[in-house]
Simulated assay, not measured.
Amino acid sequence: MAINLTKGQRIDLTKTNPNLKKIIVGLGWDTNKYAGGYDFDLDASAFLAGEDGKVKYDQDFVFYNNLEGGNGSVIHTGDNRTGEGDGDDEQIKIEFDKVPSHVHTIGIAVTIHDAVQRNQNFGQVSNAYVRVINEETNEEILRYDLGEEFSVETALVVCEIYRHNGEWKFKAIGSGFQGGLAALCRNYGLQVD
């Protein structure tokens, strides 16, 4: 049975589940009906950061234009441009044994593509969640529902998966940013043109 988390909670992933080697981070959302004339295109991404919280190499930023990072340890399964249907809208797979030693935190984020041009924000998004699934058993380990506290934000750091004393843990973040993907990139130390 999956554990439901609230903002700020941390949970151990590998210490209590020593056989957990591969996970799927599933992200889902619905968009509220509005007459803006554009579809919503939400995008998941992963920032593979060092101890200082910064991404050391460009290839360690995993998103729709770079589907693999961390020497193949983190794989984005592809861009869903509409969010239609039930279940996860986008997924990121992580294989713990392959994560390079320079990576201490994997920040999972969701952004709204062309949010400013389309006049869109997370106040128009509902039922957003992240869940962690054991890839080998397809069992849902945990779930974090983000709630409706966002209004003008165009980017969210949903959670972090991080190393602590040789084990992997999960932290429910739910922190919003204005400025979309560029703001998140700067937050994680990446140069943005």
Score class of each variant (00 low, 15 high):
38 Y>M: 08
25 V>P: 08
135 E>V: 12
191 Q>E: 11
21 K>H: 14
179 G>H: 09
128 A>C: 11
23 I>L: 04
66 N>E: 06
116 V>S: 09
59 Q>W: 15
119 N>M: 07
140 E>G: 00
99 V>W: 05
11 I>M: 15
172 A>C: 06
186 R>L: 11
155 A>D: 00
161 I>L: 08
187 N>E: 15
145 D>H: 06
119 N>W: 07
47 F>A: 09
43 D>A: 13
64 Y>V: 03
170 F>C: 01
85 G>I: 05
189 G>E: 11
120 Q>D: 02
56 K>F: 05
42 L>P: 00
111 T>D: 02
65 N>F: 00
1 M>W: 09
63 F>I: 12
21 K>C: 07
3 I>T: 14
7 K>S: 15
130 V>W: 10
10 R>H: 05
99 V>G: 06
76 H>W: 09
33 K>W: 10
56 K>L: 13
76 H>P: 06
158 V>K: 03
39 D>S: 09
75 I>G: 01
143 R>L: 10
24 I>P: 03
132 V>Y: 07
55 V>W: 07
103 V>Y: 01
105 T>Q: 10
92 I>M: 07
160 E>S: 15
127 N>D: 09
73 S>F: 05
168 W>F: 11
16 T>I: 15
62 V>K: 00
44 A>T: 03
70 G>V: 00
111 T>W: 01
75 I>A: 05
179 G>R: 12
182 A>G: 15
60 D>L: 04
57 Y>R: 13
136 E>P: 08
41 D>I: 10
73 S>M: 08
184 L>W: 07
164 H>W: 14
146 L>N: 05
78 G>E: 10
173 I>G: 03
138 N>E: 14
40 F>H: 03
102 H>P: 00
125 V>P: 02
136 E>G: 11
174 G>V: 08
159 C>T: 13
34 Y>M: 04
173 I>V: 14
93 K>Q: 15
16 T>M: 12
103 V>S: 02
39 D>C: 03
141 I>C: 10
33 K>D: 13
176 G>M: 07
102 H>L: 02
145 D>I: 00
145 D>A: 13
132 V>N: 05
4 N>Q: 12
166 G>W: 02
148 E>F: 12
180 G>R: 01
171 K>R: 13
6 T>A: 13
74 V>A: 01
125 V>H: 04
120 Q>P: 06
171 K>F: 10
146 L>H: 04
192 V>A: 02
121 N>C: 11
104 H>M: 11
190 L>V: 06
164 H>G: 03
178 Q>L: 12
96 F>S: 02
108 I>R: 01
